[in-house]
């Protein structure tokens, strides 16, 4: 029972300051942010562009040491100087596939790094290619694939290691609406199979509501912090295009948008001024 109450991921009072390039005042991207992802929970973080969402995710991944604050993974403290978060898989916002590797070799990269025998890795790799709908495309290079296919490949690359925690940074934001909804449904289906904990970053509120158990809204930068937290009580399994039509969805959307609007306008004004 005590085990169950330990969250999969806990960011406690995280502050991230970046040194200014011209030696001026350091820029505080994220300030005193606390964020919890419970075991098996799907949490989305929404916030205006440039507010510090990727920064938070990098902290959770152990790729970036916060200026202050503690990260705990299943109750254990994460120390970036000792390495990245080994229990997490990370899907990056930008393309992070190895362009010199064929699809299948990208998918099995993680197994290869872990010393899994090649034959076994390939078997698992082919299985994952099939699960993300890329069966038969394994011998293509990333540049020979469409944006949607590359995202599927990245998804297979991450999920093949079956990480306890899935960190996703606007994974579908570059896709067209149809492909995107397809991928969102696929993600939900894969997630439903074994309920990993997910921290999903997006700037799209609808996507956040459609996918998550909980939506965390961040303020505009600088010194970004959570300004609201909303539990999504829509029933599962969900179809992302259908769930958008439900009254519960519309109401939640209105509620969260109301909380966000001011921040979005702030971010917009700041960008105009810059």
């Amino acid at each position: 029972m005590a085990e169950a109450s330990v969250p999969a991921l806990a960011l406690n009072d995280i502050t991230c300051r970046f040194a200014a390039r011209d030696g001026g005042e350091p820029y505080t991207a994220v300030a005193d942010t606390t964020l919890i992802v419970r075991d098996g929970e799907f949490v989305s973080v929404v916030g205006p562009t440039g507010c510090g969402k990727s920064t938070l995710l990098n902290v959770a991944a152990g790729l970036l040491a916060p200026s202050a604050g503690i990260v705990e993974v299943h109750g254990e403290r994460l120390l970036p100087e000792l390495g990245v978060n080994r229990r997490a898989g990370y899907m990056f916002q930008a393309d992070a596939l190895m362009p010199w590797r064929r699809g299948i070799d990208n998918v099995v990269a993680g197994l290869e790094f872990r010393g899994v025998p090649r034959a076994q890795a390939l078997r698992q790799g082919e299985e994952w290619l099939r699960r993300v709908g890329l069966a038969g495309f394994g011998d293509r290079y990333p540049h020979q694939m469409s944006g949607g296919m590359r995202k599927r490949l990245a998804l297979a690359q991450t999920l093949i290691l079956s990480p306890d925690i899935l960190l996703m940074d606007e994974p579908f934001s570059a896709l067209d609406v149809q492909t995107r909804q397809l991928m969102e449904n696929e993600l939900l289906a894969l997630w439903a199979e074994n309920r990993k904990s997910v921290l999903f970053i997006t700037h799209d509120l609808e996507e956040a509501i459609a996918l998550s158990d909980r939506v965390v809204v961040l303020s505009a930068g600088p010194a970004t912090r959570p300004i609201g937290e909303f539990t999504v009580e829509l029933s599962r399994p969900r179809d992302v295009s259908e769930v958008r039509m439900t009254p519960g969805f519309a109401e939640l959307h209105r509620e969260i948008w109301h909380a966000m609007k001011e921040e979005v306008l702030k971010a917009y004004a700041r960008q105009r001024a810059a």
Binding site: L63, Y90, F113
Partner: peptide, 13 residues
Amino acid sequence: SPNIIASARMLGA
């Protein structure tokens, strides 16, 4: 690309 390095590290490299 720093992304590719970060990605490989996350995959356990």
